[in-house]
């Protein structure tokens, strides 16, 4: 028996629409759930006071510091490395088998689970180089973790600059670096910045790679070799060890808001980029 196309059409709309709706409901539920329970806890006081009794009460000030400094270290190291590398790969080398292998390699590294970076950072930075659990070890580990992503997104942004711009620039007597500086980078910049912002977002939310390299000290770090705790690590410890559900919710809310802010600004930049282009 053949079902009339009109009914398959309706059935499809119901099933596909249902799947979309379910997806949206789940995702919105997660955010609303966390914010609803966390926002009442989250306040100026919560953000700026020190935790007491392992975080059972008090605020999350030191973890706020950790959450700012760790991604900052990572970004300061990984951005120039990543951007220069992508400029070199896309503007100074010709497309060969070697560049294809490099691209595949960075793709694979971008897909490596963060726990493996944590394992590497722990053995290499913390133990072998003797940095101990520290901001430096954690920042370096995060830098290594986001480097492939930055290389990839920068390269995509650079490749999106029309080839004709390069031709025009070269035909007007520009050298490679002049072309990069005056035409390529200004046009690729929003794309590169978006990639960097997304990496910051990822660093803020990262737990597995951080907990084993930066440690989980609740003191306010005074040097790069001090251990520190980020909000995600703090949240993980509060939740997993059942220390304080209330403070866990508060921290989670702060975490989500931070990550969403970073990502929203990335999208805002991207959109400005696209609308400027067309």
């Amino acid at each position: 028996m053949r079902i009339h196309p009109r009914y398959t059409q309706r059935g499809a709309v119901v099933i596909l629409g249902g799947a979309t709706l379910l997806t949206l409901v789940i995702l919105i539920f997660i955010i609303v759930f966390i914010l609803e329970k966390g926002l009442p806890v989250l306040g100026w006081n919560f953000l700026t006071s020190n935790p007491e009794d392992m975080g059972r009460s008090g605020g999350i000030f030191p973890t706020l510091i950790g959450t700012i400094i760790l991604p900052l270290i990572a970004i300061i190291i990984a951005t120039p490395l990543g951007v220069f590398t992508s400029v070199y790969l896309s503007e100074y080398t010709k497309e060969t088998r070697a560049t294809k292998i490099i691209r595949f390699g960075t793709d694979c590294l971008a897909g490596i689970p963060s726990i493996i970076f944590g394992l590497f950072g722990y053995i290499f930075f913390v133990i072998t180089l003797g940095m101990g659990w520290s901001l430096l070890a954690g920042g370096l580990t995060l830098a290594v973790m986001i480097l492939p992503t930055i290389i990839r997104t920068s390269e995509e942004a650079i490749r999106a600059v029309p080839k004709s711009y390069r031709e025009v620039s070269f035909s007007l007597g520009a050298s490679s670096w002049q072309t990069v500086k005056k035409v390529i980078l200004p046009n690729a910049l929003p794309g590169i910045v978006t990639g960097v912002m997304l990496s910051i977002g990822r660093s803020i939310g990262e737990t597995a790679a951080v907990i084993f390299t930066a440690g989980s000290s609740l003191r306010i770090p005074t040097s790069l070799l001090d251990s520190a705790r980020t909000m995600s690590v703090h949240f993980y410890i509060l939740a997993r060890e059942g220390i304080s559900a209330e403070n866990a919710y508060g921290t989670a809310a702060a975490l989500i808001i931070a990550v969403l802010l970073v990502n929203l600004s990335a999208y805002w930049l991207m959109n400005r980029f696209i609308s400027k282009r067309s």
Binding site: Y165, E167, G173, S175, V183, P186
Partner: peptide
């Protein structure tokens, strides 16, 4: 090559103003 291109200018088929 850079000097060459300064001496020998080029206009392409598609007009490409830089942004």
């Amino acid at each position: 090559v850079v000097e060459l291109r300064k001496k020998v200018g080029m206009v392409f088929a598609m007009p490409v103003p830089l942004p």
